[in-house]
């Protein structure tokens, strides 16, 4: 057996199962350099086995459990209820942290709408009836055009999206502002187009009033449900200062 073969078998020899064991030992007895090498490799292995097992902090287990709980919570399904409104039937998704999604009925059926909500939220959804606080939040909007934003959860959105939507919520009912105005309000005057993108993806229209944002010439520009619906909502709020 050659030195290089003996060297390769060192780790196997430690398990005492190596079939060439007798041959390796015979070689080692006659070969001081290989003996020296084996000694050194054993030294390395010994050092590694001696590394003190690190003591995890006492807070680790509670942290892990909490981490799992919040991860499970974050992926728990949202409930979806159908609510009647002056604009027709609404689909409203909610969880204990607040309302997460509002959609006007497109007339495509529950299944299609549920699929759309699921894709938008990235979570599963379960059909439900609306609890009183959800009904009251929507009713309050149609009654006084004021949103109870503490009952709306947009925490899944990016900081830019959240800031943009909060800026729209400062536009008084009955008035409109431009995309550029929203961009300037959040301190990014060059981001008018990005603001438009956020409006288009707004998961909670009405409550975060993206319908009050128009282009720089006061034209309705665009809306998820068509500019006729946008005009109707603005008229419900008593706004006449927009252009078609």
């Amino acid at each position: 057996m050659r030195c290089c073969d003996v060297e390769k078998l060192w780790d196997d020899m430690r398990d005492a199962l190596e079939p060439h064991r007798a041959a390796v030992i015979k070689h080692l007895r006659a070969c001081p350099p290989c003996q020296e090498l084996y000694e050194q490799y054993e030294g390395i292995a010994y050092c590694l086995t001696c590394l003190p097992p690190p003591e995890p902090p006492a807070t680790l287990v509670p942290k892990i459990i909490e981490h799992i709980r919040s991860a499970v919570k974050a992926t728990a399904p949202d409930s979806v209820a159908k609510i009647a409104s002056p604009l027709g039937q609404l689909y409203v998704a909610f969880r204990e942290t607040g309302i997460t999604y509002v959609a006007l009925d497109r007339g495509e059926g529950d299944e299609a709408e549920f699929q759309r909500i699921k894709a938008r939220l990235g979570r599963s959804v379960v059909p439900s009836t609306a609890p009183a606080w959800v009904n009251e939040t929507l009713n309050a909007f149609f009654r006084s055009h004021v949103s109870h934003l503490e009952r709306v959860d947009i925490s899944d959105l990016t900081p830019f999206e959240q800031a943009t939507l909060r800026a729209t919520a400062t536009i008084p009912p009955g008035e409109v502002r431009s995309y550029g105005w929203v961009a300037a309000t959040i301190g990014q005057p060059n981001a008018a187009r990005a603001v438009g993108g956020v409006m288009a993806r707004n998961p909670v229209p009405l409550l975060y009033p993206c319908h009050r944002v128009v282009d720089c010439e006061g034209r309705l520009h665009n809306y998820e449900y068509g500019i006729d619906v946008k005009a109707r909502i603005l008229e419900l709020e008593g706004c006449r200062s927009y252009k078609r």
Partner: peptide, 21 residues
């Protein structure tokens, strides 16, 4: 003996207290 390590010398046969359980 220089061969002791592979034959189970003190370094391996007496598992250190820090050996992972």
């Amino acid at each position: 003996s220089a061969l002791a390590p592979i034959l189970g010398d003190y370094r391996l046969s007496s598992a250190p207290a820090t050996m992972p359980q």
